[in-house]
Design a protein around this nucleic acid. Structure first.
Lengths: 132, 132
DNA sequence: CAGGATCCACACGGATACTG
DNA sequence: CAGTATCCGTGTGGATCCTG
């Protein structure tokens, strides 16, 4: 019953690379999927309900939101709390582990937003040279 | 002729999220693919040749190495220098932009290697609960 | 040596319909 | 409301063969 979407690619054994590289790759493939970071950053401001997240993200299907949240929950980054009310209510919240991840992700985000222009112009130069 | 592998998912317009989130997502999907980080970290120690990288990584096909390097080159993170000798020789090297990315990636890597045990035990707990 | 070209499998992700 | 189930297209990545 393992969610389909959580398979962190297990790299083949390779003594040329130390374990750290694999750890990085593993975390990045969790965090680097299409939605996880957005969810993490949205949960940074406090617990959220399912449809609340769905509305905030806007472009996500409930299937993908479910899978993303399951993946994060499985990795211990997010908790899922069910209130047995009618209608049902489920809160998602970052764990301490998840909150710890926030900082390095934001670092990367800072770097990203500072360098998007450079990257985009690099892309245009590259594409201009290669399909014309 | 754009490489197939560089399509950063363009999220649908959404005024609930600021541009930073998208930038993060964009960079993460570049850096979060299966091989980019490993290549970046290997290039951190200096320029490398194609097959040298291939050997160091070990589990990668030349197809994927090519696509990964093209993607990084397209984004201006890596330079590709061809020496017109026989046999041919091509060096890949981080650009200043690429070297700048090294730091935040290593931050994330540090976080990763520090927390793999927690994550893995969280996974085991989760899987234990759900398929039994 | 450094790739380009092809073929193929499967994982990822979207849309829709249904449920407790 | 918060999901689950199903169907289905596409993207991602591996293997193999070929070339300047």
């Amino acid at each position: 019953m393992k969610p389909e979407h959580i398979n962190v690619p297990v790299l083949p054994p390779n003594r040329h690379l130390d374990g750290d590289c694999r750890a990085v790759a593993s975390v990045l493939s969790r965090v680097g999927d299409k939605w996880s970071v957005l969810v993490i950053m949205l949960l940074a401001s406090g617990p959220r309900r399912f449809n609340e997240l769905k509305r905030m993200i806007g472009g996500i299907s409930q299937r993908m939101l479910t899978l993303t949240l399951r993946g994060l929950e499985r990795d211990g980054l997010v908790t899922r709390t069910v209130f047995p009310t009618i209608p049902p209510r489920v809160d998602y919240e970052l764990t301490d582990l998840g909150r710890g991840l926030r900082k390095p992700v934001e670092e990367l985000g800072k770097w990203a937003s500072e360098h998007v222009p450079e990257i985009e112009s690099a892309r245009e130069r590259f594409d201009g040279k290669n399909d014309r």
